[in-house]
Write a protein that binds this DNA or RNA. Structure first.
Length: 488
RNA sequence: GGCGCAUUCGUCUAGUGGUUAGGACACGGCCCUCUCAAGGCCGCGGCAGGGGUUCGAAUCCCCUAUGCGCUACCA
């Protein structure tokens, strides 16, 4: 049978980076085996539904390069792909289970259950079908009567008293759980919606899913699912439970401790391929001495069997390093195109492609992310508004002003304003004064950029252009120096 | 509390009975140098602990510890 896998998120807002990794592994696995990737929306909790999150999810996944073969946005042979549109299917299956004796009606209210839970000291409450309000304690006749009267009810799974449930996980191997530790899970809620467990099992079967690849937090509920598959007489799909993505303190990755929404990282300017590359390597690694992989290579090398079992901490520092590697190796023309988006968003309009290319080429090795260039070197976009006086003080002496004035004069005479020409011109001048480059270059840098750091000074001047450089120097000498004279 | 899963440098990981336990990021030093980077070289640093099995264990088994997850009419 050909591979069919699914990504089944809840529409509760944004796409979590853990969700992206789950989606990515499903995607890689599907592509690797020429299978299909299905998007299924698990919106069975009406209280947590957030409008527009499905559109958002799809958009964000598309940003990462993950496209689906079937889903609510494109349809498919197993539609609908939104669980809230499949309510009758779940009800029918839940009732089928009751008929077969695998499930039963129960009438306990949420408050009653809550109270019962309060009584047990440490979360040790387990639903007792022999003492609470349900089909067994009430009898079939009364149960029918209550239902016909419209009394709210749920349908619960009748879990065997003591039975060994064993299953095989591709990543973790064989796992054995005794059914005495499994609760009589609610399958159909009193509002008519199914719980995750019922909907998931029914849909995975009806949609012919061959492999369930999902987060480790689902591992403890697999026994319930096995019981359901058995009750229906269905084959259990292959299982693979992925290790969790963790915060620095090793708890499950969550808000509060940093950004968890993929959108946050898009917003910060990480490259999609770098981000996907990073995420893919959290919990899986195809080799021992490489970490930069294109999506095609990831697909080619992906193996569920090689996925790690232990959780992985999401470390932004490492992400930055990988993003920087992409930044240093992508073609400048491509980067400039993308850079324009960020630049214009900050309100720097009307810059030429040529200029942006030069700026990127000059500064990309000094930052981690494309838009960081604007923070690192604002002077490439606007005239300096502040000057690093602390730094200037260290390099300024009684002759600096006159030297700089002379340099301004000779710079004006350069016809081809290239970094080599600028360099030679200034060095020649300094030689006549018996000075070294280091005696003037730092002050010059502050005068032109306002900062103590940046790309090579001559290259920077070339990119800024003669007119701009002259203007800045004149302004510095005529207007800035008099004002700051006392301080330096 | 119960059940489950996990445990190799600070972090991501390679490793599947015989390796000086490898790489990357981070960190430190040196080189390069007009600053800041990038790059090159060097260094720091790890098999949670204890028992077995074995000629030999990071690798297999058991125990302990620790961490995490689940324990909802949430997913």
């Amino acid at each position: 049978m050909s591979v069919r896998v699914r990504f089944a998120p809840s529409p509760t807002g944004y796409l979590h980076v853990g969700g992206l990794r789950t989606a990515l592994y499903n995607f890689l696995f599907a592509k690797k085996h020429n299978g299909k990737l299905i998007l299924r929306i698990e919106d069975t909790d009406r209280t947590r539904y957030v409008p527009n999150s499905v559109e958002n999810l799809i958009k964000t996944l598309a940003w990462a390069g993950i496209e689906f073969d079937e889903g609510p946005h494109i349809g498919g042979p197993y539609a609908p792909y939104v669980q809230s549109e499949r309510l009758e299917i779940y009800r029918k299956h839940a009732e089928m289970l009751v008929e077969k004796g695998w499930a039963y009606y129960a009438f306990d209210t949420a408050e009653e259950l809550e109270q019962a839970r309060q009584k047990s000291p440490h979360h040790e409450f387990k639903y007792d079908r022999h003492s609470m309000k349900n089909q067994f304690t009430f009898g079939n006749e009364k149960t029918r009567e209550l239902i016909s009267q419209g009394i709210p009810y749920v349908i619960r799974l009748k879990v065997p008293e003591s039975q060994e449930i064993r299953f095989f996980d591709i990543i973790r191997g064989e796992i054995i759980v005794n059914s005495k530790d499994v609760d009589d899970q609610v399958l159909l809620k009193s509002d008519g919606y199914p719980t995750y467990h019922l909907a998931n099992v029914v849909d995975d079967h009806l949609m012919n899913i061959t492999h369930i690849i999902r987060g480790e937090e689902w591992l403890p509920s697999v026994p319930k699912h096995i019981l359901l598959y058995n009750a229906f007489g269905w084959e259990v799909p292959k299982l693979a439970h992925l290790p969790l993505l963790l915060n620095k303190d090793k708890t499950k990755l969550s808000k509060r401790q940093g950004d968890v929404a993929v959108e946050d990282y898009i917003e910060k300017g990480y490259f999609r391929d770098a981000f996907v590359n990073f995420i893919a390597l959290l919990g899986w690694n195809p080799s021992k001495d490489r970490e930069i992989y294109s999506i095609e290579e990831l697909i080619d090398k992906f193996e569920l069997e090689k996925v790690n079992r232990a959780g992985a901490i999401f470390d932004v520092v490492k992400l930055d390093a990988i993003n920087a590697k992409y930044l240093y190796s992508k073609p400048v023309s491509e980067l400039a195109k993308e850079f324009r988006f960020w630049v214009e968003r900050r309100g720097y309009l009307g810059l030429s492609d040529d200029y942006l290319q030069k700026v990127v080429a000059l500064l990309r090795e000094r930052v981690k992310k494309l838009p960081d260039i604007m923070d690192f070197a604002p002077y490439m976009f606007e005239k300096p508004v502040q000057y690093d006086l602390e730094f200037l003080k260290k390099h300024w002496n009684e002759t600096t002003y006159e030297n700089m004035k002379d340099i301004l004069t000779i710079l004006k005479q350069i016809e081809e304003f290239t970094s080599e020409k600028i360099h030679d011109t200034i060095v020649n001048y300094l030689n006549t004064k018996n000075l070294k480059l280091r005696n003037i270059i730092h002050s010059l840098r502050v005068a032109i950029t306002g900062l103590s750091y940046g790309a090579g000074m001559f290259e920077t001047m070339e990119v800024l252009g003669k007119e701009e450089v002259v203007e800045r120097l004149e302004n510095f000498l005529n207007n800035v120096v008099p004002k700051i004279q006392i301080e330096i």
